[in-house]
């Protein structure tokens, strides 16, 4: 075989592999997008829509815009449809919960990681290991416990009970040990001498944390924020137990309710699924500019 031919074959194989991987990612996405524009409620199963199959009904439903649906094809009878709780509402619920909880996680995990990375105290090591071990049990296992706890709290402090966002956020905030580990790992790579220098300059611990360490750690906080945010936008089990009123549902819970036992509204579901990608994409683009290397370079030479 000539070298050119060999080279060609090698490139061909590489491209084929890449094309297959791209297809694996793109095909389902295209199917879902098409299903959201397809007349009737069909599960995502087609890669092509003929012209007469297109409709905006599902998107109107999801966005809470009233539209007419044909009830009887022969008589041409129609009815006006508008969702009682427009799924768009769930969308904003999700953004609210995910943003607040992610912020809370950053604050809690960041300060905890600071303590583990920079302070010396009894049981520091065992606590750190303990956190990791605890995290190995899936949170879902504790769902019934969470339910009981929240309903108990809710009887006394109604705004943190079941069917409240604070209640859900509280549960989300309990699962941060992996984030503590991640942030601590990042802090460990930053030379402590800059903070010591700030201390000599007269900065308090809080000033040192917020004005020196935090700005240098922007990348890890961006990563933790975006990962938590994505996780919570799509989190189902906990949210479905805590949030049962239609008005307070999050996107994932709401979307699932569209494909329930009796009725499977695949078209609505698909539109909502596509919509849920929007905040994640936006948040990712926002965070991306913080996820850059070299933030600490020039400060301390190792």
């Amino acid at each position: 075989m000539s070298p050119q031919r060999k080279q060609f074959l090698r490139q061909l194989t590489a491209h084929l592999v890449l094309i297959i991987v791209c297809a694996l990612v793109l095909v389902p996405l295209v199917m879902v997008i098409l299903a959201s524009f397809r007349k009737g409620n069909f599960p995502p199963n087609a890669l092509w829509l003929s012209l007469d199959q297109w409709t905006l009904d599902h998107w109107k439903y999801v966005l809470g815009i009233p539209y007419r649906e044909v009830m009887n094809a022969t008589s041409g009878e129609t009815r006006l449809i508008q969702a009682q709780t427009p799924p768009l509402h769930w969308f904003f619920n999700s953004i609210l919960v995910a943003s607040l909880a992610s912020l809370g996680i950053i604050l809690l995990a960041g300060t905890a990681a600071y303590a583990f990375a920079r302070l010396r105290f009894r049981f520091r090591g065992p606590t750190l290991t303990g956190l990791l071990i605890l995290q190995m049990f899936p949170q879902v296992l504790a769902l019934t416990a969470y339910y009981r706890i929240l309903s108990y709290i809710g009887q006394r402090v109604p705004w943190i009970g079941l069917n409240t966002f604070p209640g859900l956020i509280l549960i989300y905030l309990s699962g941060i040990s992996i984030n503590i580990w991640m942030i601590k790992g990042y802090f460990d790579t930053i030379s402590i001498s800059m903070e010591e220098s700030a201390r000599i300059d007269g900065a308090s611990r809080f000033q040192t944390f917020f004005r020196i360490l935090l700005p240098m750690s922007a990348p890890i906080f961006a990563v933790v924020f975006i990962l938590s945010f994505i996780g919570m936008i799509s989190e189902y089990p906990t949210a479905s137990v805590v949030l049962q009123d239609s008005a307070v549902r999050t996107l994932a819970v709401g979307a699932y309710s569209l494909v329930g036992e009796q009725e499977k509204l695949w078209g609505h579901f698909s539109a909502l699924a596509v919509l849920s990608g929007v905040p994640i994409t936006i948040m990712f683009l926002l965070c991306q500019r913080f996820i850059i290397g070299g933030l600490t370079s020039g400060g301390a030479k190792e």
């Binding site: 800059m194 301390a300 030479k301």
Partner: peptide, 12 residues
């Protein structure tokens, strides 16, 4: 006032 071996400047 202290001058550190690794400069310890505030990089940001």
């Amino acid at each position: 006032a202290m001058v550190f071996q690794n400069y310890a400047l505030y990089p940001h």
